[in-house]
């Protein structure tokens, strides 16, 4: 944090400074700061000022996740070819870009989340905004997929597709945390596999044809 500017008066700057200092602290010590009081003091702001921007450290963490999503989203859309992708390819592209962005923050994320055996350790609050943004993105994809016939509309179930994709995202995050292969090649393979599986499941399958046939037989009795 060599460029911490104590005279910066703008609210946006303080917010940014808090997030930066938090990340720095985690990187340096391997854990979150002990208290908001200590953290604010070290940063040269009052505890009160901290609370003007965030209610707790969870909020700060959430902000980091937010940035990760925004960066991923921007990078992904910066690729010209993105617009011509099918829904499935868009999702693949999202994950590949995402792990690329995650890589930049790997030490920070490892310090916070490594060794936690289950996904729920990433508490909902921390990733809420990330999740909301992702689900919105996923919903868009699903709509697009349905329009293109890539995804089959199934009553009740298809409303839950975005939730399923979110769980998959958490899974991939965990996988990536544990991945030790050269340049995270295994994560790449995991992404290909899980996305294919997901789209195999939500695309037209034998089961749909079966239900269709059963319906027909029932109706024409």
């Amino acid at each position: 944090m060599e460029n911490t500017d104590f005279n910066a008066g703008q609210p946006g700057d303080t917010r940014k400074r808090i997030v930066q200092a938090f990340v720095e602290h985690v990187l340096q010590t391997g854990r979150p700061p002990a208290s908001v009081f200590k953290f604010a003091q070290d940063l040269g702001i009052s505890e009160e000022e901290f609370y003007r921007y965030f209610t707790s450290f969870q909020g700060v963490k959430s902000d980091v996740w937010d940035q990760i999503f925004d960066e991923t989203f921007a990078m992904m859309h910066a690729q010209e070819v993105y617009q011509s992708y099918s829904a499935k390819e868009k999702l693949l592209s999202f994950y590949y870009t995402w792990v690329e962005v995650l890589k930049k923050h790997r030490s920070y994320l490892l310090a916070l989340y490594e060794g936690h055996p289950n996904l729920h350790k990433i508490t909902p609050q921390e990733v809420r905004s990330f999740r909301e943004k992702f689900k919105e993105f996923a919903k868009g994809l699903i709509q697009e997929g349905k329009a293109e016939g890539e995804i089959v509309d199934r009553k009740y179930i298809s409303d839950k597709y975005d939730d399923a994709l979110w769980l998959k995202t958490l899974f991939l995050f965990q996988f990536w945390l544990k991945d030790t292969s050269v340049s995270f090649e295994k994560t790449d393979v995991a992404i290909e596999k899980t996305v294919t599986l997901a789209f195999d499941l939500i695309g037209r399958t034998a089961l749909d044809s079966f239900v269709d046939l059963a319906k027909f037989l029932y109706q024409s009795k």
Partner: peptide, 28 residues
């Protein structure tokens, strides 16, 4: 074949850019 986003990813890892940047055209 493998999906195109993975091809893009491989390029990005190797050269830091997408295939479209290195070449004028590139079959998806």
């Amino acid at each position: 074949p493998l999906s195109y986003p993975l091809v893009v990813r491989t390029f990005q890892k190797a050269f830091g850019v997408a295939p479209e940047v290195l070449f004028d055209t590139f079959t998806t």
